[in-house]
């Protein structure tokens, strides 16, 4: 396979990864926007943030997720969006791992505000897979541009 084909495959893969990553974040943000009160309770149950930041986080985080997701799908402001995407995934993985380590049995609040979505190693693994995708796309955005290729 020559170099040109590799680039085409990478461009297609990167395009798909970008769409999937964006859709995931939008799907995660919308239920929290619709039921902010329940989501605030979930943020509180994580017992990581001080009281003063719980409602602010519950209000701000879902919209940040949706906006970053929309930017990923539309391909606008990709350098900023992909850095924030990676930052969000790292923060989620850290928060989940910390509470699993402490043995706190709480709802995830990842893709819904219903109590049935508890946290376990499977939840962390899912986020690690998403992080792997966003790291790959960060490499596409930052490294390919430097090497002179048009970013996706």
């Amino acid at each position: 396979m020559n170099k040109l084909n590799w680039i085409k495959i990478n461009r297609k893969t990167a395009f798909l990864v970008r769409l999937v990553l964006g859709a995931i974040l939008i799907a995660a943000g919308i239920p929290k926007i619709l039921d902010t009160v329940s989501f605030a309770g979930m943020v509180y149950n994580y017992q990581i943030l001080p009281d003063q930041l719980i409602n602010l986080t519950a209000l701000f985080l879902p919209w940040l997720e949706v906006l970053v997701g929309v930017l990923m799908i539309t391909g606008v402001w990709l350098p900023g969006a992909v850095i924030l995407y990676n930052g969000l995934m790292l923060a989620f993985i850290a928060a989940l791992s910390f509470n699993i380590y402490r043995g706190v049995d709480i709802s995830c609040g990842c893709f819904s505000t219903s109590p049935g979505e508890s946290i376990d190693m499977g939840t962390v693994l899912r986020d690690v897979v998403i992080l792997a995708g966003s790291l790959y796309f960060a490499a596409v955005v930052f490294i390919k541009k430097i090497s002179g290729e048009r970013p996706l």
């Binding site: 940040l64 402001w77 350098p79 900023g80 969006a81 850095i83 924030l84 955005v141 930052f142």
Partner: peptide
């Protein structure tokens, strides 16, 4: 992309 990210992140 790095310099773009510097202003895009606070804007987002």
């Amino acid at each position: 992309p790095f310099t773009n990210a510097l202003w895009q992140i606070p804007a987002i």
